[in-house]
Computed example of a mutant assay.
Amino acid sequence: MAVVMEYTTSDGTTIKINDEAYRDKTEEELQRVRENIHRVASRLFYDSMCSEREGNVRG
């Protein structure tokens, strides 16, 4: 397993993509991987925005 991409979000969340996520996958499996990554990233973004909004309301 090799990390091929690594991201750190503004709130400090680290996202690592390793080659096992897509190595030796069919096109259909790759599509599911992309959809899953999108779903997780969208959820992280949504949660981050909600946290910021709550902080602004309370602050």
Rank of each mutant, 00 (worst) to 15 (best):
M1I: 11
M1R: 14
M1S: 14
M1D: 14
A2W: 08
V3W: 01
V3P: 04
V4I: 10
V4C: 03
V4K: 05
V4Y: 05
E6H: 00
E6I: 04
E6P: 00
E6Y: 01
E6T: 11
Y7I: 05
Y7H: 06
Y7N: 01
T8H: 04
T8N: 04
T8F: 06
T9A: 10
T9R: 15
S10Q: 12
S10M: 13
D11C: 00
D11G: 03
D11P: 02
D11H: 10
G12T: 03
T13H: 03
T14C: 02
T14L: 02
I15A: 01
I15V: 15
I15M: 06
K16W: 01
K16H: 02
I17Y: 06
I17F: 14
N18L: 01
N18C: 02
N18W: 05
D19L: 02
D19N: 14
D19C: 00
E20H: 04
E20Y: 03
E20W: 01
E20R: 11
E20N: 13
A21C: 05
A21L: 13
Y22M: 09
R23A: 15
R23V: 11
R23I: 12
R23N: 15
R23W: 14
R23S: 15
D24Q: 13
D24N: 15
D24M: 10
K25R: 15
K25L: 15
T26W: 14
T26E: 09
T26K: 13
T26R: 14
T26Q: 09
E28D: 10
E28S: 10
E28P: 02
E29A: 03
L30V: 03
L30E: 00
L30G: 02
L30P: 05
L30M: 10
Q31N: 11
Q31A: 11
Q31S: 10
R32V: 09
V33R: 05
V33Q: 09
R34M: 14
R34A: 12
E35G: 03
E35C: 00
E35M: 03
N36L: 08
N36G: 06
I37A: 12
I37F: 13
H38M: 05
H38D: 08
H38N: 06
H38T: 08
R39A: 10
V40N: 05
V40F: 10
A41E: 04
S42P: 06
R43S: 11
R43G: 05
L44V: 09
L44M: 14
L44K: 13
L44H: 09
L44P: 07
F45K: 09
D47F: 02
D47V: 01
D47R: 06
M49F: 08
M49Q: 12
C50L: 14
C50Q: 13
S51N: 08
S51W: 03
S51K: 14
E52D: 07
R53W: 11
R53V: 09
E54A: 15
E54N: 11
G55L: 06
G55N: 12
G55V: 03
G55R: 15
N56K: 09
V57P: 01
V57I: 11
V57R: 07
R58K: 11
R58G: 01
R58Q: 09
G59E: 13
G59A: 13
G59R: 15
G59W: 04
